[in-house]
Amino acid sequence: MTEKCPIQINMNKFKINNTDLEVSRINFGGNVFGWTLNEKQSFAIADQFTEAGFNFFDTADTYPWWVNGTGGLSESILGKWMKERKNRDKIVLATKVGSETQEHGFDISRKHILQSVDESLQRLQTDYIDLYYTHFDDKVTPVEETLETYQEIIKAGKVRYIAASNISPERLQQSFEAADKNGLPKYVALQPHYNLIDREQYETQYAPLAELYNLAVFPYWSLASGFLTGKYRSEADLSKSQRGGGVKHYLNENGLAILDALDKVAGKHNSSPATVALAWLLAQPHIGAPIVSATNNKQLEDLIAAPQLHLDQEDLDVLKINL
């Protein structure tokens, strides 16, 4: 069993359990690099994020595969930015492995991890990754093989710590059991799909494991693909961005009630729905740093304001929508 120690949190940063990584309480999602932001725009938004005192970036070897079919652009842009800014030592860098191969579909075999980590390091123009995620579980590779490979690349200095994203609760538990039994590295963080409107799977299946294994939690889709910003309130709004089609299923009684609640709390605090939605996440147990992206100054301001917004019990009760 992993040794228990509470997450050490201040208003802006916290230390990930069982590591020496101190990260900002907002984790910038690099999926926009090379997609909705070109290289110049990506550099500008990354500069603004770090100048505001934040240091935590999340990307993946496959981002943005939906643009070029292969991915890699996000890592390449982030790597070039760090090299030009000479700030690698000030950045906590997370990326992922588990893209699809002919052998496995999603692949976390030894062969694929060893190849992928070197390719990521080359694109990122660095010799180490702070936090390396199992992005997708192939459900085929023995968990021991994956963890033994992680141990190999940790010993080689290529990776500092490992984390898990889209892994079933059963395979996650098996990974910890195998690590305990064989003296292998353990996941220190979990990256689940979790936000104010998408709660059930995380809260029923993964939150107990985060508690059991003392995991820091970095939710993705923290603003439900932008729905929780309040930008989309009718079907006519769906054309406002490239992500609009992905939020149509939220336009129902429950979704609109949540937007009304966000509006109420945001009005009380002279804030925005996005800031309130992220502050709600930050008020939940084990949540360390929601992963979220911005493509302009106003969006970024809303994101980085969240750690400073304290929601009282009245606010949390207003946001507790159960329709």
Rank of each mutant, 00 (worst) to 15 (best):
K90T: 06
W81F: 10
Y194N: 00
G29C: 11
N10S: 12
Y63G: 07
I153F: 07
W35R: 14
F33H: 14
K231A: 15
K15L: 14
I26L: 11
S116H: 10
R123S: 10
G30K: 02
S272F: 15
H193Y: 13
V188A: 02
I108Q: 05
T204M: 11
L316A: 13
E177Y: 11
A283Y: 02
G226V: 04
I291H: 08
K4G: 03
E119F: 04
M11N: 14
A210N: 01
V318D: 11
A207I: 00
A46H: 02
D237I: 08
H135Q: 07
A189Q: 09
A94E: 00
Q242T: 08
A178C: 15
S239V: 12
A306Y: 12
Q191H: 08
A60Y: 01
L190Y: 12
D127G: 01
I16A: 14
Y128K: 06
A277Y: 05
A179F: 10
P285T: 03
G246R: 11
K96S: 00
Y128M: 07
N27R: 04
T36G: 06
N17S: 15
K139W: 11
K155H: 03
N252S: 10
E103Q: 14
G255D: 15
S241D: 12
P273T: 14
I162G: 01
A178M: 15
S293Q: 09
R88K: 13
D198C: 13
A277E: 12
G255W: 08
E203C: 02
K139Y: 12
A266H: 01
E144C: 00
D138I: 12
T70C: 08
A156M: 06
D137E: 13
E145C: 13
S76G: 03
A46I: 10
F43T: 04
P169I: 06
F14T: 05
V143T: 07
Y187S: 07
Q102M: 12
I26W: 05
H310E: 08
L73W: 09
L121Q: 02
K80D: 06
K86Y: 08
L131F: 03
Y220S: 07
L228H: 01
E152H: 09
S239C: 03
L114Q: 09
H269D: 03
K83A: 15
G255L: 06
T229N: 14
Q299N: 09
K80Y: 02
D130G: 02
K139R: 12
V217E: 01
K155V: 03
L196D: 13
S239D: 09
L259I: 14
K13D: 08
D138H: 13
E301F: 03
L311R: 10
P290E: 11
R243V: 07
S165F: 00
N322D: 13
I7L: 14
D237F: 11
H104V: 04
F14S: 04
N10M: 10
G53E: 11
W65E: 12
S74N: 03
E22P: 00
T149L: 11
Y213W: 06
Y232I: 02
T275L: 04
G29Q: 10
S239R: 10
S24D: 08
T146Q: 11
T295N: 06
Q191G: 12
D263C: 10
S293G: 15
P64H: 05
V292A: 15
D58V: 10
I162R: 00
P290L: 11
V140F: 05
S239E: 11
P64S: 03
